[in-house]
Nucleic acid binder design. Sequence first.
DNA 1: GGCACCGTTCGGCGTGGCCCGAACCGTGCC
DNA 2: GGCACGGTTCGGGCCACGCCGAACGGTGCC
Lengths: 247, 247
Amino acid sequence: MTTGADGRGLAGFAALLADPTRAGFCLALLDGRAWTAGELARAAGVAPSTASDHLTRLVAGGLLVEQRQGRHRYVRLADPGVAQLVEDLAARAPAPAVPPRTLRAASAGAALAYARTCYDHLAGRLGVLLHDALLARGVLDRSGGLALTGEGVSWLAGLGVPVEPLRAARRPLVRDCLDWTERRPHLAGTLGAALCGRFFDLGWTTRGAGRAVRLTAAGRDALAEALALDPALLAPPASRDTGPARA
Amino acid sequence: MTTGADGRGLAGFAALLADPTRAGFCLALLDGRAWTAGELARAAGVAPSTASDHLTRLVAGGLLVEQRQGRHRYVRLADPGVAQLVEDLAARAPAPAVPPRTLRAASAGAALAYARTCYDHLAGRLGVLLHDALLARGVLDRSGGLALTGEGVSWLAGLGVPVEPLRAARRPLVRDCLDWTERRPHLAGTLGAALCGRFFDLGWTTRGAGRAVRLTAAGRDALAEALALDPALLAPPASRDTGPARA
DNA sequence: GGCACCGTTCGGCGTGGCCCGAACCGTGCC
DNA sequence: GGCACGGTTCGGGCCACGCCGAACGGTGCC
C-alpha cells in the first residue's frame, strides 16, 4: 500500500543499481546463470570484501537471490522481471565514452551484437531477425498487441515446442524486449525463453564467450528453412571467429 | 552500440533516480502533466536552487524534457517509456517505513488506491477492475499475449473510441502495467490512454487532488452498463469524500 | 521605470557510501 | 591435523554528492 508520492522508496531501490560495481554485477547476471561471489568480484575488479557487501545489499533489496553451497555463495537475478527491469534501464543508459578500446574487445562486441542471450531469450541482430520473421510468417501477430496466433501454435509444435505448458507460468507468454544494440524489439516472455532453449537443444545454436551465442551451420540452414528465409541473411558478419571458442 | 558489460553507463543512469528528491520529482510527474520548477521544489520541500540543479540533470539524462515559457521552466517526463520505467521501478520498491502519518494523508492514500492516473491511463482498484472486465467481456484476450479482439474494436467504436488512429503510434496498442497498490496488471498502451481520456471527456470521471481520479455517479452507471457489471462493484469504498473537492 | 517573482549560478558545508586491507570463520582437500 | 581457499566482518580513509544561502539575470506586471 505504498501509493506514496514519497521518493525515498524509489530512490533507495534505484540506488541499488546506481553504483558501477553493483550495476556490473547485474549486467553480468543477465546471462541467466548463477555466479559465485568471487567470480563477480574478479569480473568487476573489486576486492572480495567489497563484492560481498554489494551482494548482501542486492539480495536484501530483492534484485538477487542467493543459494549457499558449501563454501560458495551463488547468486542470480531474483526473477525474469528483474532481468527485464535491468534490460530496460540499460537500453536507456548512454553508451560509455570509449566503446572499443582493444581489438579483442571490439571483436567480442561484434559477436554480442550479432547474437546473445538476454537473460533467457535470444537477442542481438539474430534475435530481432527472428522476431521479424515470426511476424512475417504469421506465428506472431501485432494487429491488436503482440500475440501468438493459432497458426503459430502448430508451427511451434512442428518445432517441438508445446505451447500449453508455457501458458501456465505467471510470466506473459510473449513480450517485447527492447534490444540494446538494434534499438528494436525482440521476443521475450516464456515463448522467447522456450524458443531460445529449443535452439540450444537442437544444436542450432551454441554458447560463445560470456553471453554470446553462435549459430551453427546446421542451425543456420534449419532456421532459414523453418522461417522461409535466405540462409545468407542469418549468417554472422564477415568475422570468421566470434571470440575464443569454448565449445 | 553499447553491448558493454561495463556497469558505468547503467549506474549513471540509475543514479538519476537514486536520489529522494529526483525520484520524488519523477513520481510527481507521473501524473502526465508538465510542472514548473518551483512547483516541484515546493512539492519536494527543497530550495529552488536545489531543484534547478536536479532538473538540469534529469533533462540531460533524458528522463525529462523541458519547455521554457516566459519566466517559467516547464518539465515533464520525456516519453511514455520513461513513465513505464518509473512505474516498474516504483512497483518493486519497498513501501516507505511510515505509511499513513496523518488522517488527511491516509484519506488521500485511500483515494489514490481507489483510482488514479498512471501517467496517461487509469490505475488503482478501478483500473484493475476495468482491465479484468475488458478481459471477461472479450474486448481483450490473453490466450496468446495481451491483445485487442475484433469484437473489442466494435465495442470501443460504440464507446466513441476509434482504434485505427491508436495503431499509428510507435507505442504498443495494449500493454500490461503492474499496479502499485493492487499488485496486479492494469491496461496501459495507447488504448489505455485513449480509454482514460474518453472517460474524462464523457464526464464519467473527473480529476481529484493530485493524481487521484473520481468516478461520477453517471460514470459509475454508464461504465457498469458498458461492462455488464454491478454498479456497486465500481463504487469507491465507504469513504464519503475523496480528498479536498476541486470540481 | 520600478518592482515582484521565477529561475540559475556559485561557494561552502556536511554526510553518506564506496573502497580496501586485515583479521576471522567455515568448508573441502590432502 | 594442517593447509588452501571462498566468503564475511570491521575499521578507516577518501571522494562525491546533495543541500543551502547569497547574488545575479530575465520576465512580466503595475
